[in-house]
Design a protein around this nucleic acid. Structure first.
Lengths: 235, 235
DNA sequence: TTTCCTGATATTGTCTGACGAAATCATATG
DNA sequence: CATATGATTTCGTCAGACAATATCAGGAAA
């Protein structure tokens, strides 16, 4: 699944009442722990540890793990358990190639279909928050806000299928791997990318939004090329 | 989530031994039943019926349903159970907008990175099989071969993340809705689209492959516009 | 010492049974 | 006919059990 994992009630939630099932809470908690750094890519998830820590039964936990596996967040190995997925360099570049056309579509749609000025302003605000968190905030806060930025942009575009297909949770995963290894200038480049995207959307300029996303991805590819091999599994 | 649901052992399978878990077998069986028409969009899936028919426990079934829900194949409603997802007209058009850039990327990659002639020939062969099945075959056979075509093309391109992100299972879903309502000419247009894509890939012409996919999607949009409202839920 | 085999332990995959919560259905009542 | 009420169904979740498999520790052999 493209993914389709959010923690709060959202269009793709499994229930419409606002109450989350146990497995959804668990899936959200694991995602949150990945963004915050509590769980790291490659880490082995033990059922006994998780069930006791989260206070749920094995059945609910296993449902959550199936959900996360479908989203590519964890790898399930028969009789060996669940591991937080770890992306090697090729997978990261493949993921960027895959995400880019979807993100560009999202940006074009947001610029075209932006329902009102308040929505665009929220996007700009989110970009500003990212700029602030880049310096002051915790790592998890930055990644949470980044996710919020994408979710908002997709929602503004009004294409419900896009929200499903965009592999944002998987991107969170590689961001979590990379986040602590970036230089200040790389971090700045990243945060500024969102500001430019938001500005283009606010200006209702679809072509500029498309280009802003393309530039943003080019910057990310540059950063990936600059990172040392130890950041990725298998050299 | 893009999807990530295959029935046989495949790159995204949860085990590397070739043996499938019970929940994966169930998920595959449900997908197959959708393609073959045994299960129709909107249908309510009852746990007691499925556990007895498939001979598995409720726990395994629920794991499978979580997996399918993450892929957008079933809707899970708290205390109301699982329903085969049904796409209204807007969702179908949104899905086409989302899938198109990914399919074009897949075609370009396949044309560029096609490892050997045999692979390209298999793609052409698959397109021919589709042309045959269009007339003679069962509905499920056509949709299965169509899925195989996409899987092959993606694999030829060598981008593993693309396989995850492409919402092919969700497309199966809307194909299953639409398949029996198409005219002969619409069906022919669809099958011929694959032949043109395969030819461009075989010629190693990325630009032509990209255009062939774009044309194919344009044809599908046309077909969607021609279909009557009763094909889709909610008019 | 190093390597290989073997058994003990740990972990997962799966099933069964149970119970409360919520939805659905049938019936009675106005 | 509409509505309220109780019975039934179905789901969400848990606890416990057992088999299959992987992992690890310790001993035997080179």
């Amino acid at each position: 699944m493209g993914q389709v994992l959010k923690e709060k009630s959202s269009p793709d939630d499994n229930d419409n009442t606002g109450k989350l099932s146990a497995s959804d809470r668990v899936a959200g908690a694991i995602l949150q722990d990945i963004r915050s750094g509590r769980l790291v890519p490659g880490q082995h998830l033990l059922e006994p540890e998780l069930t006791s820590r989260l206070g749920i039964s094995r059945g609910s936990l296993r449902e959550a793990l199936k959900h996360l596996a479908a989203a590519g967040i964890v790898d399930l190995n028969r009789f060996r358990g669940a591991y937080i997925a770890a992306l090697d360099r090729k997978s990261v570049l493949d993921l960027l190639d895959t995400l880019e056309p979807l993100a560009r579509l999202a940006a074009r749609l947001a610029a075209t279909n932006c329902p009102n000025d308040r929505a665009a302003q929220r996007l700009v605000k989110s970009a500003k928050v990212l700029e602030d968190l880049r310096l002051s905030g915790q790592r998890g806060d930055y990644l949470n806000e980044r996710r919020r930025f994408y979710d908002m942009m997709v929602e503004m575009g009004g294409n419900v299928e896009l929200a499903r297909a965009m592999p944002l949770s998987r991107t969170d995963l590689f961001r979590a791997q990379v986040e602590t290894r970036q230089s200040e200038s790389q971090r700045r480049r990243h945060a500024e990318g969102y500001a430019k995207i938001a500005a283009a959307v606010q200006a209702r300029d679809a072509a500029a939004a498309d280009k802003a996303v393309a530039d943003h991805f080019a910057g990310t590819r540059k950063t990936m090329a600059e990172l040392p091999a130890e950041v990725f599994p298998n050299g």
